[in-house]
Design a binder for these strands. Sequence first.
DNA 1: CGCGTGATTGAAACCCTTCAAGTTTAGTGG
DNA 2: CCACTAAACTTGAAGGGTTTCAATCACGCG
Lengths: 190, 190
Amino acid sequence: MKSILKKLITNGILSPHEISSIQIKETKINKGTILQRAGEPGGRAFYVKEGLVRAYTIDEKGKEHIFMFASEGWMVSDFEWRENAPALLFVDCIEDSLLEIIEQNDIIKLNRLFETKQVPNQINQLMNRIRVLQKRIILLMSADTLTRYEDFIETYPDIVQRVPQRMIASYLGVTPEALSKIKSKMLKKH
Amino acid sequence: MKSILKKLITNGILSPHEISSIQIKETKINKGTILQRAGEPGGRAFYVKEGLVRAYTIDEKGKEHIFMFASEGWMVSDFEWRENAPALLFVDCIEDSLLEIIEQNDIIKLNRLFETKQVPNQINQLMNRIRVLQKRIILLMSADTLTRYEDFIETYPDIVQRVPQRMIASYLGVTPEALSKIKSKMLKKH
DNA sequence: CGCGTGATTGAAACCCTTCAAGTTTAGTGG
DNA sequence: CCACTAAACTTGAAGGGTTTCAATCACGCG
C-alpha cells in the first residue's frame, strides 16, 4: 500500500530500502487549516488525494493572490526546498482534504539520493525554471509596473543593456509608452 | 568534445552508445533569424552558448508578448514536444548567436530512451507544470480579464463549482468586483 | 544628409481599482 | 423551521493607471 506521491517521485530509481527511508504522511486536514506560511522555513510538498487546496501570496496591502488550486491528483509545492529557505507561498485547505505530505528534510534526503544515483540534473534545471515562472506569475498578479521593472533590472541587469526598451516593456506586459513614462517618473524621484 | 546541452540532458543516465544516437547541432545564427514559429509543428529546444534569444507570442492584434529572454547558458523551449504538436511560441535571435539545437524527433527519441530507463516520471510532472505556468503567464500578459475567465472555466470547470468567486478573481488577478461586472456583461450578451 | 527605428510626450478613452452601499446567500442558534 | 447574522456577491460613482493614437524628438546608418 504505497503512497501515490512516493510512486510519483521514486519511480524506478530508488531501491525499496532507500524508498523506505522517505516518510510520507497521509493526513486528513480540515477546511481552513493553513499548511504553510510564506516567510517561514520548512517548505513542504503536498499531494492532494481528496479535497481542494490553494497556494497563494499576500501582498503588502494584505491582498491575497492565488497562485494555484490543487484538487484530487494534483501536487502543490513552491519548490523552495533549500535548507532553512523561507517558503514563498501560503498553502491552505479550501475543503476538508486528504493529503500526502512530505516534510522538507525528506525532500532534501530525496535530492541527495538522486544525486548519488546521478539522476540527470535536468530535474534541477526544470525545478529552477518552475521557480522562475512562479515568481513571474506572482509579480504579474501582485506588483505594479514600476516594481516589476525594478525587479527586472535587478534580476537581469545584462539583458537591460542588450535589448531595446520596447522589448523590456513587452516582457513586463505593458506598452513601450507606459514603460517610458515610468522611467521618467523614476528620474523625477531624484 | 561533448555539447553542453547533451551533458545537461543525458547526464549519468544514458550509455555512450545511446547518447551518440542523439544529434545536437551547434549552429551560428544571425540576429533577427526566426528559429521557431508559433502554430507550426516541430518544436525544438535551444541552448544558448553565445548571444541572446527571445521567446514570445503574438496576440490577435499583432502585439508581441515576450515570454522569456535567454542569454549565455540558458535554454529556451516551449516544451511542446508531442509529435506534430504546433509550437506555442515564436523564438528568434536578438543578437548573432551560437546555439545548440535539438530537433523534435531527437527530443522524442530521448524521451523514449528515458522511458525504457524508467527515469522517474517526475520529469513529466515537472514539464507539465511548466507548460501550465507558461500558459498562465502568456494569458496574464496578452489576454483581457474576460478571456482569462472563460479560459479558466474551460480549463478548470470543477474548480469553478467548488470555490467562491472572489477566489477565482484572485486567481485571475482582478478584484471580486471586476469579476462580478464581467459576469453580468457575459449575461447581457445572450 | 535623409531616412527609419526607437524613445518620448501629451490627450482622450478605457478598464480596473477603490470605496461605499445594497442585495443575496449560507450557516447557526433559538 | 424560522430568524438572525456573517459572508459573499452585486451595483454604482469616483479616481488612477494603462492603452491607444498622434506628434515630436533622438540616434545610427546607408
